[in-house]
């Protein structure tokens, strides 16, 4: 069909990319997941309350063929820091392309420098955040991921940064008249 490519990928599109949220405080994790509701339709949202749980989720995602698009991480975690976890993600080729965001109230200068230099941190949200602020950051980061990974932007037009994605379609010949 004219657009069989579009249809095939439309069927595949829902929730093929994953967002990981790592936060040890149950209430805060709940709040993050609630704020991410607008992205549920097209992304798998995976909550984790500690690092070992997060690692298990990453194994599951790999097995299911779901690339990690975005990791939202609290900084202070029992026994470790979010920054260290992000550094770990950045070293693994499978999760290296994922966008990395730190949500924190207490990261010192040293950790922040490490996060930027070694974890390839893309954004730093300081607590407390507003739903709009978080959604805007997530939207920007996911858009950047889609463009960077050259994923067909058409499925994400409605929920991510539409003008930017439409511009990418216009100039990239991803879809042409047939």
């Amino acid at each position: 069909m004219a657009t069989s490519f579009i249809i095939q990928s439309m069927n595949r599109a829902p929730a093929s990319l994953a967002i990981l949220c790592l936060e040890d405080e149950r209430e805060v994790l709940k709040a993050i997941i609630r704020d991410l509701a607008p992205f549920e339709e097209k992304f798998r949202i995976e909550p984790a309350s500690n690092v070992s749980e997060a690692r298990e989720i990453l194994v599951e995602l790999k097995r299911g063929g779901h690339p990690l698009a975005l990791a939202l991480c609290d900084h202070l975690l029992p026994g470790t820091t979010g920054t260290e976890f992000l550094v770990e993600l950045n070293k693994d080729p499978a999760t290296q392309p994922a966008r990395k965001v730190l949500i924190t109230a207490h990261a010192g200068l040293q950790e922040t420098i490490q996060a930027v230099n070694e974890a390839g941190l893309n954004y730093y949200i300081s607590k407390p955040w507003t739903a709009e602020q978080l959604q805007q950051v997530v939207r920007d980061e996911l858009t950047a991921y889609i463009l960077q990974q050259k994923i067909n932007p058409i499925h994400y037009l409605a929920i991510l940064n539409t003008p930017q994605l439409a511009q990418a379609i216009a100039t990239s010949n991803l879809e042409t008249d047939t």
Binding site: P163, A166, I169, N173
Partner: peptide, 16 residues
């Protein structure tokens, strides 16, 4: 231009 590229360009311009 291609119909597709035109549409994408207009969408990018007019959605705001």
């Amino acid at each position: 231009m291609s119909n597709t590229a035109t549409t994408a360009m207009m969408v990018a311009m007019l959605l705001p």
